[in-house]
Every structure is written in structure tokens, then in C-alpha cells.
Design a protein around this nucleic acid. Sequence first.
DNA 1: CTAGGGTTAG
Length: 594
Amino acid sequence: MNAKLSQQPDTFGFNGNRTLAQTSPYQILLRAGSHLKLLKQVHAHIITTGRNHHLPLLTKLATSAISSGAILYAQKLFLRAPTVDGFLLSSLITAASKFHFPLQTVLFYRHMLARNISPTNYTYTSVIKACAQLQDPRTGRVVHCHILTNGFSLDQFVEAALVSFYAKIRELKFARKMFDEMPQKSIVSWNSMISGYEQNGFADEAIMLFAKMRELGVQFDSATLVSVLSACADTGALELGSWVHDYVKSNPISLDVVLGTALIHMYAKCGNVRKAQGVFELMDEPNVMAWTAMISGYGMHGFGKEAIDLFRLMINQGIYPNEITFVAVLSACAHAGLVQAGREAFAIMKNYGMMPGTEHHVCMVDMFGRMGLLSEAYHYIKDLFPVQPAPAVWTAMLGACKLHKNYDLGVEVADNLFAAEPDNAGHYVLLSNMYALAGQMERVEMVRNAAISKELKKPAGYSVIEIDQKAHLFSTGGMPHPESMAILQFLDELVQQIKAAGYVPVSEAIMHELEEEEKECALRYHSEKFAVAFGLLKTRQGVPIRIVKNLRICEDCHMAIKYISLVSKREICVRDKLRFHHFKDGSCSCKDFW
DNA sequence: CTAGGGTTAG
């Protein structure tokens, strides 16, 4: 055995056979790594040995300090440096950008310009990345101008950084234009473009660009697939998502924690929790994000107990939960009616040094409200004082009032919601329904007038069903499906059948007046009924029907689909804005907690 | 003596 290895290292990791003074300060710095305490000792050493004029040393010291998170220390070092050169500044810029100090990155860049030091391509990529992190289009465009005038616009790295920047500030058309005009497209620029689409809600474009990549035979990698999986999760594209999983299994792509988490998320959001579970169980070292993805997957399918058990297991394994983990846990409790477990989880947040935020408040109110504990929910909101409840908290409370038919409280809550967010068109249906239910017709009129005068349009509801790898979209507002007539006829027959089985449409009287236009529309049913009918027409008996809807499913459709699952003897799975509904034999997995 | 662009959970 090597004798040196058995010797105890001193503070700087030496074996004791050389003294500090004999070792090069640079070596000491390297050994100090990113431990701020050690770095400060090295700094003192540098000063006492009279080497604080040595720029390369100061540079390494400052970048190490940044890597330890001590950006202020690095800034002080910089300001007190006897001289400054381009090497020091570009090192500071890249380090500050890499360790997520975008504001300081831009400030160092300003120093560079003020001292007339020419930036390099390294500098530009870092600064552009910082502008993206800051969501600062103005500075980013200025830097883009500098790039053009200094002749760096054809650098592969700089170009990829610019595409990523424009995608991240939601200038997707411009990002795509730059991307299309790139003579040499690196894999990173493809990935920037695909992830840019996905992150900004254009999952279809992300999937189409990936298809183009395959068509052109461009090699993709793990980062590409992660973004594609997110896009599949967004749209419910299970077939493509499964293809990605198979590809990963049969190719030398390591299933790391990032890719694993993306797969869990995809399977959960495409309706297949068991597959998500399978991926999770195969992961070597799931981190907090992987655990949270799995907990949330259970939650959105109504498996509250599984979610709670997994959360407990996570804690026992010493994984530190974060705010998002608690959102997933509380939401799982809300969707499964596990009030006691939810209270306990909420109570331990403070053990982890966390203050509940809006999302947690929404979950708690939702949880109490769904269970009919309206007064508990309402007191929860009142106890937030002096914190003003966010509109989403009022929305949860309003939904609970409607579900449990407490119209007096509902009107009060609706007034609060309307006052808190008068311009949100998404609330109008819920608001005016509540006022109509309470017989407050002058308030219905007020909401309606506000909507008209502000030209607010509620988001159009749509449902998507994937059949033979092709997505079919049904919407009350958009283009009719080419087979509308046949589907409508089939749907009418279906409605007769479920009426015979006991289905009673939810009374038109409580439907809100604003929906008048919708009733006149050629599509006389909500999009999810249409999608279900289409699915029944196009798939064989025994094949489950999977629908993705952008809004929450309404009471009438929920009831109707329960009956449809009964008369057609089909499993029907609907993902709405919040959660999954698995319909089978006339009942729904949500136990009517929707 | 140095440092790049893209990817995960609500």
C-alpha cells in the first residue's frame, strides 16, 4: 500500500511532506476547490507572500469563489485587483454565467466594454446565456449587435446561444429564422429550438421539428429526447413517448436521472402510471425531482395512498423535499380526499424551513372544499390575513361552493374573485354560473357586460385523441373535423342509449348565458363527448379510449362519459386540466371529486 | 496556468 495515502492530509489536502511555502500557490488553489473557507485562507496566504499582484492567481481565486457561490467576494476581489486584463474579465464572465449569476455576468461584461477589452466567442456565449436567464430582451439584442459588428455571428457556439436566447424570450419565430439560416446546425442548436418550442407551449412544433430531425438523419441525443418527452407529456402523445423509451432501451443512451424523470413524467401524463412506476423503480439514484414526478403522477391519477407512501419512503431515505414536492403531495391528498394526511404533510413543511406559498394554499382550500369542509376551507382563507389570497385560492373555494351547492357563500367568494381578477376571461363561466345558481341575475349581467366591454374571450375548450399515431382535435371554436357529420350522428344515437340507461343531462337552466353561442354552434356537444364518440367509432372493442382536454371536464360530460363507459363496455381515460379520470363500468376513478 | 451552447418535477 502506498505509504503517502495513509498519511493524514492537512487543511489544504497535503501529505505533510511539503510545506505551504514550498508548494506553488496555484497548486494550493486547485486543492482548495470550491470551499470558500479554504479559498479565504489561500487568499490570506497569497497576500502575506506578496503575490496579490499576480493576476492569473487572482483569476483562479475569483472563479473558484464564484463556483462556491461567493459572488460578492469575487466582485470585491475584482474591484481591488491592482490591474485588470481580458483574461480576468472573461474568466469572471464565464464563471458568473455558469454558476447562475446572470446580473453579475452582464455587469462584468460592462466592465469589459468600459476598459475597451475585446470580448471573445467564449464571452458572448456566456453573456447571451445570462440575458436569457434574466429574460432581458433589450440587453440581449444589444449584445447580438456587438456580436454582428465584431464578426462572431458565424461561430457555432455563439449562434446556438443566440437561438436559445431568442427561444427563451419567446421570440420563437425569430429563433426559428436564425436556426433555419444557420449553414451548419449543431445538435445543440436543434435541441435549443426543440426545447424552446416545448417550453413555450408549442409541443406540436417541438414534435414536428424532431420528426424533421429524424427525416434528415440528424443524430439526436439524450437532451433532444428529454425535450421530446416533455412535448409528449404536454400533448398526451403516448405512442411517440413509448417509441422514445424503446429507443433508449435499444441504444447506448444511458438512462440517467434527467431522462428517467422525463420518462416518468411522460408516462404519468399520458395516462400510464404503472409504466411510470416501472421506470422509477429501475432508477439508480432518483433525486428529489424524480421522486416528485412519481408522487405527482400518482396524485393526478387519484392514487393518494401511493403518493403518501412514496413521500414517506422518500423522507426515510433522506431525500430532502422542496416546495414542489409538497405541492405534489398536497394535491394528491386533495384529489383523493385524504384530509388528515394532507394536514400532516402541510404541518411538516415548516420542519424543512418552508413557508407555504400560493400553490400550497390552493391545494389546502381545494382539499377541504372537495370534501365539503367549506367552513374549514373558508377559515383557512381568512387565517391567511394579512396575506391577500391569490385569485387561484378564490377559484378553488368557488369550485367547492358550487360542488356542494352553498350558493350564499358562493356569491361572496365570487365577489372576491371578480374583485381580485376582473380581467381573467377564464373565470367568467364559473362566476356567472355561480351568480345564476344563486339567482343573482343582475350580477350575471354585470359579469357579462364586463366580458363584452373588455372584449374578453374565454379560452376555447378542445379535446385531443390520438389514433394510429395521429392526433385528432375537437374544438367548439375551430375547424370542424372532416368526419363531423358521421360522428354527430353516432353521438346522437349514443346519447339516446345512455338516456335509456339512466343518464339525465345536467339542466340547461344552470348553464350560463354566455354559452348561448356555443349552443347554437353546429357542434352541439362539448369537445370531449365528440372525441369519445370518435374514439369509439375508430377503435376496436377492448381498446381503451384516451382523451386529453385543455380545460376541466364539466359535470354533464363527466356524467355522460360514466354512462358511455357502461353502455359501450369500454374503458375511457380523460386527462383534464388538473387530473385524470378513468371511466369504467359506469363509474370514475375520481369518485366524483373533480 | 483558463473557459463554451441544449435537457428533468407543479
